[in-house]
Amino acid sequence: MTDLDLRKLRYFVAVAEHMHFGRAAEQLYIAQPVLSRQIRALEDELGVQLFERDRRGTALTAAGEQLLLDARPLLEGAQALHRRAVRAAHGTDTFTVGFMPGLIVSAPVRAMAARHPELTVELVRTTWDDQTTVVRDGRVDISFVRPPIDSEGLRTRPLYTEPRVVLVSTDHPLAGKESVALADLADDHLLQDPDMFPEWRAAATDPRAQSRPVPVFHSVEEKLEHVAVGRGIAFLPLSVATFYTRPDITYIAVSDLSPGEVNLVWDSVRRSPLIDEFADLAAG
């Protein structure tokens, strides 16, 4: 049985994400020849070829694709282990809760702090991009999330649902309506992945509406700026829409859009009475 070197595994993931040895080496702050030798050493240890390199560029082999799938959660788990060990060594008695924008989590947090005066309950604001990553890498013990998520390796507890609304600019033809149907929005440019909203995809009969490129956003604020200047529409949970109220955007109820969910997630391999207790408080 081969003992995997996590450092080599990190190097492999960097190359796989960049598909370029030079850029990966820059990210890792090592020389490219050193990186190449480390990848070859990893291939020798595993007995498989991970990359195919030719004049056209770098590509993952089937073995490389499988290793990439398995490597990310393994590295995140190792990072979580390190964080918890350091925390324990320093005698830090903390419990950390992640939460998405628009969610109010003060009630279970206050209840948890009241039950355990010796415990420091900390909060970490998350985004669509890292709402489960912070659980896997140990930055938080438990997190409030909005599906869809990759739930592999996580325990999930549904909490509640809430309406989802459409956000439009104030000069949009539908602005001012109390409610609309998805068919009314079929020709609009959706600034989100259509796969997240299958009801809208079904209503958008014009193929051009479904095939328009989706911008990459790193925050809700960026998405709202695009809505405000009339570049498209966005569907958001009602709590998020009200949290980000602004004069150049309005939100409208959508009669046939399914509600959004709010769940709790935590690492499925962890056994912690505090996690179970907090989950019960949040669900209660």
Rank of each mutant, 00 (worst) to 15 (best):
A204T: 03
P148H: 00
F197H: 04
L274Q: 06
L264E: 07
V254F: 04
N263H: 15
E162Q: 13
G57M: 06
R139G: 09
G22L: 11
P73A: 07
G138H: 09
P108I: 02
S258P: 11
A113D: 13
E222I: 00
A209K: 01
T245P: 10
A175W: 07
T126V: 15
Q49H: 12
P117A: 08
R208A: 10
V105W: 06
V145I: 07
D206S: 02
H172R: 01
L119D: 12
T120P: 02
P273K: 03
E52D: 10
F243N: 03
R83I: 03
R201C: 00
D193M: 10
L42I: 12
W266A: 05
K177F: 06
S255Y: 02
Q192D: 12
L75W: 02
F243L: 06
L50D: 00
T161Y: 08
D44L: 05
L174T: 01
T96M: 02
G153E: 01
D256R: 13
A234I: 08
P117S: 09
T120M: 06
A85C: 05
R146W: 10
T242E: 13
D267G: 07
S272R: 05
H226A: 10
F197N: 01
V254D: 08
P33L: 02
L68E: 09
F217K: 12
F197A: 04
I252K: 03
F217V: 11
E261T: 08
D129K: 09
D187E: 12
G77L: 14
G22T: 14
G153K: 05
R84E: 12
Q131I: 05
L167E: 11
A88E: 14
P198R: 03
Q210C: 09
P101D: 00
A113K: 15
L224D: 04
